[in-house]
């Protein structure tokens, strides 16, 4: 059985078929990219996986468990973390507390214990803090620890969002256009980090991306979508040469 599997996933808004009977599988430890023109339904697939939308039909499996009906907050608890296309950070909080929210799925303390800040809470906090520090080190975020998000530049925010997702120690991470808005240098860094995530942290990556050079550098496999349907699937080179994909991009 595959690690993560989407079966006949569909999302219809009235007559519009944003996602139409899409099936794919992600193997453990691979980096799978979803490409396609604007409005192809890439982000919608992510929103279906993280349960922001409810699928019109189809099922989603993760580690052989059907997660189609799980409430949205449980998806993170299962070990699926994500980033957002337009950055959804907690603007009026520090970088540190943003990252600590990423640890939320690992918190075990009860409300009354937290009110008294019992030693168990303190011990837990230190564990969280240590894990967060590891991620900060991994992504070179040391200078920003105590800064408020609202004052940080776009490129840094993008990395912080990745960091927040990593803080939850995910098994599968969904990256929604990780390089959008980044300059060439920052995109380079991003590609290294994505590969390191796979090799060092053992995270499986599912990614939506427009930048083909980034896709080519990091992906093990690529899926091409258009109008909510799968056009092609395979290695980056195979997909890019596929006639349907070429047609979709050139508009022929």
């Amino acid at each position: 059985m595959s690690y993560f599997r989407a079966e006949n996933l569909s999302l219809h808004f009235g007559g519009l078929k944003a996602v139409d009977a899409v099936s794919f599988a992600v193997e453990k430890g691979e980096i799978l990219s979803i490409i396609g023109p604007n409005g192809a339904g890439k982000s919608s697939i992510f929103n279906l996986i993280s349960r922001i939308y409810r699928p019109t039909s189809g099922r989603i499996f993760f580690e052989d468990q059907d997660i189609t009906e799980q409430p949205p907050y449980d998806i993170a608890k299962l070990g699926i973390a994500r980033t957002f296309q337009n950055i959804e950070l907690f603007e009026n909080a520090t970088v540190l507390s943003n990252l600590l929210v990423g640890r939320h799925r690992h918190s075990t303390t009860q409300l009354w214990q937290e009110l008294l800040f019992l030693p168990s809470v303190r011990a837990n906090e230190k564990v969280h803090r240590r894990r967060v520090e590891q991620v900060i080190e991994f992504l070179d975020l040391e200078p920003y620890r105590d800064k408020l998000i609202s004052g940080l530049p776009y490129g840094v925010r993008k990395v912080i969002e990745l960091a927040r997702a990593l803080c939850s120690e995910p098994k599968l991470i969904l990256l929604d256009e990780p390089s959008s808005g980044l300059n060439v240098e920052e995109t380079d860094d991003m590609s290294f980090w994505i590969r390191d995530m796979k090799s060092e942290l053992g995270v499986t990556v599912l990614m939506v991306e427009h930048d083909m050079s980034l896709v080519n550098r990091v992906s093990d496999r690529v899926i091409a979508l258009n109008y909510g349907r799968v056009l092609a699937m395979g290695s980056p080179a195979e997909v890019q040469e596929h006639p349907d994909v070429v047609a979709a991009y050139l508009g022929a």
Binding site: Y73, F84, H104
Partner: peptide, 23 residues
Amino acid sequence: RSPTGRAFVAIRDSETAARSMGV
């Protein structure tokens, strides 16, 4: 300074992100 308080702040700033982080 505990998970609950941070979850509150997370909800204030972005419910979507809070949810996707397991809140």
